[in-house]
C-alpha cells in the first residue's frame, strides 16, 4: 500500500466520511491536519512537556490542544508515551519541563488529588477496582466534597447523613445506567474484568468531571461489552464532557473519536480526524517501520540474502555447540 503523504493544510471539510455528525466534529471541520494545531475551543493545552527516564525520552510534546466537548483518541505503538502523558497531565508523574493547563489554569506542580478536584479524572490501564469494598461503596468514594470525609465531622453522623443519601441515589442511578445495580452489595473483587472497567468508569462519573481520561477502556473486554462501553463513552460527550482516551483497536478509534492524536517515541507525530490518520505517512511509518513497502534493488536483495545465509550458518554452528553442551550435561 503506497500511502500518499497527507498534504499539509488538509482539513476534514474537504474529506469524505462520517464527519460533521457531532458538535465537536463541526467545530473541528476547518482545523488543519497538522501537529500542534490550534483548536477553536481548547480545554487542555500542553506546551513543551518533556519527561525522561534516564537516557530515554518518554514524552516530548511541543504543543497539543484538546478540543472541549469532543472525544479525542490518543493512539500510538507500544512505548509511545501515551500512558506517561496521561500520568503527567493528571499529576501522577512530574515532567522535567514544560507547562500544561486546563481551562486556562496551569496544572503543573499539582498533586493528583488536586487535579482530580479541578474536574479532570482518569481511569487506569490496569483496572483499579477496590476489591474488598462493595460496588456501591466504590461508587460513593467517587463523590466530591463529602463532609463526612474529614476526621472530626465523620464522628457526627448528622453532618453527613443527608449528603450520603443524595450520593447513594446518584450512585444507584449511575449503576443502573451501567447495568451494575444488581451487584451493588457484592465485593468489587468478584466482578469480571469488563464489569470492573464499567465500575471504574461509573465511579469516575460520580465526581461530575469536566474531563474524563480513559486509559485503554476496552482492553480485555469482550466484544459485546465493548459495544456498551462505546455507547457510554459517547454518552459522556453528549453530556458535554471532554473525553481523552488511549486505545489500540483502530475500529473503536474510528468509530467514536472526533479527533485523533498519534504519538510515537514520545512525540506527537500526527493529528487529525480519524479518517485522515490511516493515510498519514508518518503514522504508517511509526506502526510498520519506515521503508517497509519500498521495493528492493537487485544489489540490496543479494546483500540481504547473503546476510541471511551467513546468519543461518552461524545459528547452526551455535546449535551444534549447544547440543554438545547439553549432552555433556545429561551425562553428568
Amino acid at each position: 500500500m503506497p500511502a500518499d503523504p497527507t498534504p499539509t493544510g488538509a482539513t476534514a471539510s474537504g474529506a469524505t466520511g462520517p464527519a460533521g455528525r457531532t458538535p465537536a466534529r463541526v467545530a473541528l471541520r476547518d482545523v488543519p491536519w497538522e501537529v500542534g494545531v490550534a483548536k477553536p475551543d481548547p480545554a487542555i493545552v500542553v506546551d513543551g512537556v518533556t519527561r525522561t527516564f534516564g537516557g530515554l525520552t518518554a514524552v516530548s510534546v511541543d504543543h497539543l490542544e484538546i478540543q472541549r466537548g469532543g472525544i479525542t483518541g490518543l493512539i500510538g505503538p507500544n512505548g509511545a508515551g501515551k500512558t506517561t502523558l496521561f500520568n503527567l497531565l493528571t499529576g501522577f508523574d512530574q515532567p522535567d519541563g514544560g507547562s500544561w493547563s486546563f481551562d486556562g489554569r496551569p496544572l503543573g506542580k499539582l498533586a493528583p488529588h488536586q487535579v482530580a478536584r479541578l474536574g479532570v479524572v482518569r481511569t487506569f490501564q490496569l483496572t483499579k477496582a477496590l476489591s474488598r469494598l462493595t460496588v456501591l461503596q466504590n461508587m460513593l468514594l467517587g463523590a466530591q466534597g463529602q463532609k463526612g470525609e474529614s476526621f472530626l465531622s465523620a464522628l457526627v453522623p448528622g453532618i453527613w447523613r443527608g449528603q450520603e443519601k443524595a450520593n447513594t441515589e446518584k450512585a444507584m442511578e449511575l449503576l443502573r445506567r451501567f447495568k451494575l445495580d444488581a451487584k451493588k452489595d457484592e465485593f468489587a473483587g468478584t466482578l469480571s474484568g469488563g464489569q470492573r472497567k464499567l465500575l471504574e468508569m461509573a465511579r469516575a462519573l460520580m465526581s461530575d468531571p469536566k474531563v474524563v481520561m480513559l486509559d485503554e477502556p476496552m482492553a480485555g473486554v469482550n466484544p459485546a461489552l465493548t459495544q456498551s462501553l462505546l455507547g457510554h463513552v459517547k454518552d459522556l460527550r453528549e453530556e458535554g464532557m471532554t473525553v481523552i482516551f488511549v486505545e489500540h483497536d483502530m475500529d473503536v478509534v474510528r468509530d467514536i473519536s472526533d479527533w485523533v492524536v498519534v504519538m510515537a517515541a514520545g512525540k506527537v507525530i500526527a493529528e487529525g480526524p480519524p479518517e485522515s490518520i490511516s493515510q498519514n505517512q508518518a503514522v504508517v511509518d511509526a506502526y510498520l517501520g519506515a521503508h517497509h513497502d519500498a521495493p528492493l534493488t537487485v544489489e540490496e536483495e543479494d546483500r540481504v540474502l547473503a546476510e541471511a545465509e551467513s546468519e543461518i550458518a552461524r545459528e547452526e554452528q551455535r546449535d551444534t555447540g549447544r547440543s554438545d553442551d547439553s549432552s555433556e550435561g545429561t551425562l553428568r
Partner: peptide
C-alpha cells in the same frame, strides 16, 4: 479502606 485497596485509585478520585 479504599487506600488499603489501591492508593492511586483514591488519588485519582480527588
Amino acid at each position: 479502606k479504599s487506600i488499603r485497596e489501591d492508593e492511586d485509585a483514591v488519588r485519582a478520585l480527588g
